[in-house]
Each structure stands twice: as C-alpha cells, then as structure tokens.
C-alpha cells in the first residue's frame, strides 16, 4: 500500500509544481460564473434561483479541463509502461491518480464555489450545504473522469472527445448535487439527496478505477 501513497504524493507534488493546470481550472470556473450575471441581466431573484445549477455546471466544465492530464503525460513519457511492471495493480494506480486529481482539483474548486456564489446572489445560509455537496460530489467527477482520460490517452487533441465521453456520466452527480442545495430550503431537509450523492461518489470510486485500468491495458498495446 505504500506504493499507492507514494504515487498519490508524487502526483500532488507534480500538480503543485506545475501549478498552471489548477490555475487554469480555477480561472475558468471564475470566468464562466462571472459571465452569467452579465448574460442574464441583474435580476437577483432569478440569479439566486439558478445559482446552484450554474455553480455545479461551471465546476464540472472546469474539472473537465484538467482531466486530460491524469494519464496523458504518463503515457507520453513512458511512465505508463513502468506502471504496468509494478506490483501495484493498474486498478489501484488509476485510483491513486484519480484521488490525487480530486485532492488537487476537486477540493480547490469546491472551496472556491461559495466565493463565486456571491456573484450569483446565492443565499448565505446555503453556503455550508453548497460546500458540503461539492466536497461529497467531486470525487465522482475525478473517478468517472479517469475513465474518459484513460480512454482518450492516445487520441491527440482528445479534449473534445473526452468531454463527450465524460459529461453524460456526470448527469447523476449534477442532478443530486443541485437537489441537495434546493432541498436545504425545503421542509424535508438535505438527508436523502445527500446520501444519494454520497452513494454516487462511492460507486464511482469503486467502478471508475476498474474501467480506467481496463482502458489503460488496451492503451499499452
């Protein structure tokens, strides 16, 4: 298991040293959300009603930008070949890389979301729920995204293809991520939606690495 954490540590270190990828994702998140009020007009009631949806969609798109990096550089410089000779199964290698992606992209994006909520007149009382839903929902973004990243690793300029593969997989996360926030205002509370969102993340964490590793084995050929 130490090899697993060694790999997670290396990926975090690489992400911190490169810096650019996280900066791009955060910047993209900021720009997309900032443009919404400009496009929709200064209707504060409308903005606060659609704010959870805008924040979640913008977060998914921003995370999508950084997904390609999960396996691409490792494929290009031959690291993937060496991974295939490790005693650590390829499934756990894919899991380690997806986990590192969540730690370096998912968490920063989730923490930035309330700041952007101000731009959309989001009710301050919903901030804890917003952060909670995003922290719980973003693991599925990274672990499902790893599948698409592994499938498109050989495709040059595979970014658009990656979006086509991955975005449909994000639909359940999006639906329940938003319903957690809207349920927080209702009488029934956030309980059930929150649990379903958590279940989606857990299922992605279990199945995503299996699918990603199967795709990587094909890429090795």
């Amino acid at each position: 298991m130490s090899a697993f954490w060694t790999l997670v540590g290396r990926d975090i270190r690489l992400a911190v040293r490169e810096g650019g990828a996280l900066g791009t994702a955060l910047g993209f998140f900021l720009i997309v959300v900032a443009m919404m009020p400009l496009g929709l007009g200064p209707d504060l009631n409308l903005l606060s009603r659609i704010a959870p949806g805008i924040l979640w969609i913008a977060l998914l798109l921003a995370a999508l930008l950084s997904l390609g990096r999960i396996f691409e550089t490792d494929y290009e410089d031959g690291t993937l070949d060496v991974f295939a000779t490790a005693s650590l199964p390829l499934e756990l290698i894919a899991a380690a890389k997806a986990l590192a992606h969540w730690l370096t992209t998912g968490i920063p994006l989730a923490l930035l979301a309330p700041v952007l909520g101000i731009l959309l007149n989001l009710d301050v009382k919903t901030y804890p729920v917003l952060i909670g839903s995003m922290l719980v929902g973003t693991p599925s973004v990274s672990f499902l995204g790893a599948i698409g990243a592994a499938l498109t690793v050989k495709a040059r300029r595979g970014g658009l293809l990656l979006a086509l593969i991955v975005l449909p997989l994000y639909v359940p996360t999006l639906i329940f991520g938003i319903s957690v926030i809207s349920a927080s205002a209702g009488p029934s509370g956030v309980g059930s939606s929150f649990l379903i969102l958590m279940a989606i993340s857990l299922i992605s964490m279990a199945l995503g690495p299996l699918a990603a590793a199967a795709a990587l084995r094909i890429q090795l050929q």
């Binding site: 090899a3 790999l7 690489l14 290009e76 000779t85 490790a86």
Partner: peptide, 30 residues
C-alpha cells in the same frame, strides 16, 4: 512484467522533479 524492468523509448522521467526525486519515486514505487 512484475519481475521485469522495462526501458522503452520513453525515459519515464518527470520534468518537474529533480533527478534525485525521479529516482526516489521509482525506488519507493517499485
């Protein structure tokens, strides 16, 4: 494969790590 070292056309070297860090990673990983 688990009993083998494979050196292909790529060097499996990360540009953002120092030479020592690159080797330390492979030592700890393999």
């Amino acid at each position: 494969a688990e009993q083998a070292h494979v050196v292909g056309h790529g060097n499996a070297v990360k540009a953002n790590l120092t030479a020592r860090e690159n080797l330390q990673f492979w030592a700890a990983f393999l």
